[in-house]
């Protein structure tokens, strides 16, 4: 499981460089669900997250023989997943810009509910998912990497392509935004409760 101790990690990297399938399986088992959870919370679309997940693993396999012996697998995999998501968002922006006119003709609104929101076990989880989903991508990303995926600050900074100091600032801002969003969610829930109770 992650975080791995450095010796296990470097041994796995060495075996991956030789194309060892068992080493791949060990890395896959350690990171697959974390990567998928990260991608699903970023994209909020199941099939897109699955496709990006598959691309992430295929990238690892393609570059396995070129990995540096001191590669931090978590940071490497989450960097690839994040970059694939950024590329996806860019391509969607272009696509959306060209189809925006057509979409206004569509009679019903598109459901943007997160898959997590739909399956949340309790009201607090649901509010947290909604608050998280309402944040800008950069803030959501840093909270997901540290709070959910369990990466340390150095690895998360590598993934985002920023310095650890910049990451700490971004995390502080993101945290404040999440707290405010959660507060707003709670207020909305209370006012809705007030409307339905006499």
């Amino acid at each position: 499981m992650y975080p791995m101790d450095p010796e296990t990690e470097s041994a796995l990297v060495e075996r991956l460089r030789c194309g060892d399938e068992a080493a791949f399986d060990a890395v896959y088992d350690a990171f697959n669900l974390r990567l998928f959870t990260f991608l699903l919370r970023l994209t909020r679309r199941h099939h897109v997250a699955e496709d990006l997940l598959e691309d992430t693993w295929l990238r690892l396999v393609k570059h396995a023989h070129r990995l540096n012996p001191d590669t931090r697998l978590g940071a490497w995999l989450f960097t690839v997943a994040r970059n694939l998501h950024v590329s996806y968002v860019r391509s969607r922006l272009i696509e959306d810009a060209t189809t925006a006119g057509l979409m206004t003709l569509w009679p019903v609104s598109i459901d943007r509910t997160s898959p997590f929101e739909a399956t949340a076990a309790n009201e607090l989880e649901r509010r947290l998912e909604r608050a998280l989903a309402s944040l800008p991508r950069a803030s959501r990303e840093v909270l997901l990497l540290i709070g959910v995926a369990g990466l340390d600050h150095a690895d998360a900074a590598d993934v985002c392509g920023i310095t650890p100091d910049a990451l700490r600032q971004r995390l502080r801002r993101a945290r404040t935004m999440l707290a405010k969003a959660l507060e707003a969610e709670s207020r909305a829930a209370k006012s809705m409760l007030g409307e339905v109770t006499p």
Partner: peptide, 8 residues
């Protein structure tokens, strides 16, 4: 709280 969120 985020750490306690369920995995996908």
């Amino acid at each position: 709280l985020l750490d306690g969120l369920p995995s996908a």
